[in-house]
Amino acid sequence: MKGTQAVEQGNLEVQVAITSTDEIGILSESFNLMLDKVRQKERIKATFGQYVDPRIVEELIHQKTSNNTTNKQIVTVFFSDIAGFSTISEMLTPGGLVKLINQYLTLASEPIAQNNGVINQFLGDAVSAFWGYPFVNENDHAKLACYAALEQSNQLNKLRRMMPETMGLRKGLPEIKVRIGLATGKVVTGNIGSEHSKFYTVMGKAVQIAEQLEGMNKIYGTTILLMEETKMLAAEAIETREIDRLYLGDRNEPIGVYELLSYAGELEPKLAEWRDRFEVGLREYRQQNWEQAQSNFQACLHLKADDKPTQLYLKRIEFLRQNPPAQDWNGVWENFG
């Protein structure tokens, strides 16, 4: 009785003493064998939980068959990368580099896990994750992905405080910045691979677009970019500003791209004004009203002097005044060379 009560309370290390060879002894032995199997399953979950999301491990353990485990669904994909990582890696010994990467990936993973996301892959210093059913509510995946992205800045601050010890330096520490892309769309989820080796992953255009948006941050001088579908689904939970319209993936129509700024209601009044003036300037820009667009963008710089997208649009206006687009121009800039 004490053994069963201990197991009920979560103690799997209990062992029932076998003191007879009658039915009670046989029952005690069977109980111990059952506990051995439970402990073995828990060890498997603990071990593979370091490589695969524990919820996926749980699902795989309880599956009776490995066939037909894929499905199509709408998810939000997160892709992040450390800016200028190759330069940072050249400063470190192999051991120091591995330690820094492990520290960063541990910190970057925490907000994803806390917001019920699934880590898809670690690709060097890059992190790929996704949110979708059954791991989160069907209506929450975009919002939770945005939360995880916003919380990365706090994790970076923790990493910066750890770096002197990690790198053995007090001065000359590299500046660590992370770029993030978020995209929402229909993907295939499930166990993908050969007969001998499979892994749980997502495949689809949203994965490609999230990675593209991560890279586009470099051009715009932003930190977090998300596609319009993601913004629409999470609109009540976040503050954004429209940045551009871009051809992403293999879509024939341009996609609205937004910068993720903060949680809803947490944008300072001055930054809210800056965001609103920027979007007015963007509308005038698309209508080829160069003077009005320039005036609004210059007002943005008075509110936030180091704003890279504003500086970028002022350069574009200067170019387009000298090289006017067609009257039916859709406002999409394609000269990224």
Rank of each mutant, 00 (worst) to 15 (best):
residue 2 K to L: 13
residue 8 E to F: 12
residue 12 L to C: 01
residue 17 A to V: 07
residue 21 T to V: 12
residue 23 E to R: 14
residue 24 I to S: 13
residue 34 M to E: 08
residue 35 L to K: 08
residue 36 D to P: 02
residue 37 K to R: 10
residue 39 R to I: 12
residue 43 R to D: 11
residue 49 G to D: 01
residue 50 Q to F: 13
residue 53 D to I: 06
residue 54 P to Y: 09
residue 56 I to Q: 00
residue 62 H to P: 07
residue 66 S to D: 13
residue 71 N to D: 03
residue 73 Q to A: 08
residue 78 F to V: 04
residue 80 S to V: 05
residue 80 S to Q: 00
residue 81 D to V: 07
residue 83 A to L: 05
residue 87 T to E: 14
residue 87 T to G: 14
residue 94 P to K: 06
residue 98 V to T: 02
residue 103 Q to N: 12
residue 104 Y to H: 15
residue 105 L to A: 04
residue 108 A to Y: 04
residue 109 S to H: 10
residue 114 Q to G: 01
residue 120 N to L: 07
residue 125 D to N: 13
residue 125 D to I: 01
residue 128 S to H: 01
residue 136 V to A: 10
residue 151 E to Y: 12
residue 160 R to K: 15
residue 163 M to L: 14
residue 174 P to R: 03
residue 177 K to G: 00
residue 179 R to Q: 14
residue 189 T to R: 05
residue 189 T to G: 04
residue 190 G to W: 11
residue 190 G to E: 07
residue 199 F to H: 09
residue 201 T to W: 09
residue 208 Q to A: 14
residue 210 A to T: 10
residue 218 K to I: 09
residue 221 G to T: 07
residue 225 L to M: 10
residue 226 L to V: 10
residue 226 L to C: 14
residue 229 E to N: 14
residue 229 E to G: 11
residue 229 E to F: 12
residue 232 M to F: 11
residue 232 M to G: 04
residue 239 E to F: 01
residue 239 E to G: 06
residue 242 E to D: 08
residue 243 I to A: 11
residue 244 D to C: 10
residue 249 G to C: 12
residue 249 G to H: 13
residue 253 E to K: 15
residue 255 I to Y: 06
residue 259 E to L: 05
residue 261 L to A: 03
residue 265 G to D: 04
residue 274 W to P: 01
residue 277 R to M: 00
residue 279 E to K: 02
residue 281 G to Q: 05
residue 281 G to W: 10
residue 296 N to P: 07
residue 298 Q to P: 00
residue 299 A to L: 15
residue 303 L to Y: 14
residue 306 D to T: 13
residue 309 P to H: 04
residue 310 T to H: 08
residue 320 L to I: 08
residue 329 W to P: 07
residue 330 N to Y: 09
residue 334 E to R: 15
residue 335 N to R: 12
